[in-house]
Design a protein around this nucleic acid. Structure first.
Lengths: 162, 162
DNA sequence: TTTGAAATATGCAAAAT
DNA sequence: ATTTTGCATATTTCAAA
């Protein structure tokens, strides 16, 4: 469902909100884009209604927040209840998010944070009880760089390049 | 660096802002927590200054935004310039974020979105030119469930459980 | 950490393009 | 249909305590 393809204003709004969804005010955005504040809020409402913007989240440095261990658990659930399992996995304490893999041997990617390694093994055990075959545990860095080039106004040409 | 361990108020603020960083107002939060609005903004400022909150981002449904393909590219850069390469990788169009893996054969995880598969191969080529050995390309679902149990007030006991 | 006042931002309705 | 304008309301900010 793509009711309306995104125009330049939409893309610039998306780009701005991906970089700063809280401190940036509608008024500032409006000034940048040289439109009225209500135009900006109308556009944002549309993007939300169309499901293009799904939410606004604070990004947390888990290490500094007291969870020095971050890991991705790679696992497999039977195709039939993969989605159910994914949802249940989300409710396991210390699980941060879950993704489904579309191809390959494994089909679940579970991000976990913990204070100690026992947190990670406890999550792994809980996943096993949900019917997930745990394949690998991979420690990852908490740091991540989010360039968010997709909606950069300048990158438009490159993105649509064949 | 953990100047002050997080107390109950901090955790509840983090939990709230992870679920909704834009529509929720300081005033509402204050009412929920039964403290004054300025206490809430003071706490938030602290969390930001201490680097626990690193930013606020709009979450985008890339599929609906015109990028039906989402993938993770798993690759390896030499340990010496892995961090430099990670930063450069972020500037490649269509790259959404980059993570470093701490152990294992591979050490980079690059998330990419694209309109067509040629976008993905272009990114893979660009990464190769940066010195990354591309190991796998894994298509992933756009959907993800973010339960964010880590800061749920109720989960406190479980989290600290050995 | 709270209180209260000033400045600013948002939301809504009506009007205009 | 979308954008703008203007006003009433709500919120954040900053001072001082």
């Amino acid at each position: 469902m793509e009711p309306t393809p995104l125009d330049r204003i939409d893309k610039r709004i998306l780009h701005a909100l991906q970089n700063d969804a809280r401190s940036v005010t509608t008024t500032e955005l409006a000034a940048d884009l040289e439109v009225s504040p209500s135009t900006v809020s109308n556009r944002i409402e549309h993007l939300e209604r169309d499901g293009i913007i799904t939410g606004y989240r604070a990004t947390v440095d888990y290490e500094k927040a007291g969870f020095p261990l971050q890991a991705v658990i790679v696992g497999t659930a039977s195709m039939s209840d993969r989605e159910t399992v994914a949802k249940q996995a989300c409710t396991v304490p210390n699980v941060v998010n879950v993704r489904e893999l579309m191809f390959g041997e494994d089909n679940l990617l579970v991000k976990v944070v913990g204070e100690t390694s026992s947190d990670l093994t406890r999550v792994a055990k809980a996943l096993t009880e949900l019917g997930v075959t745990v394949r690998k545990k991979i420690l990852i860095s908490d740091e991540r760089f989010e360039p968010l080039t997709a909606f950069e106004p300048e990158s438009e040409l490159v993105i649509h390049d064949p």
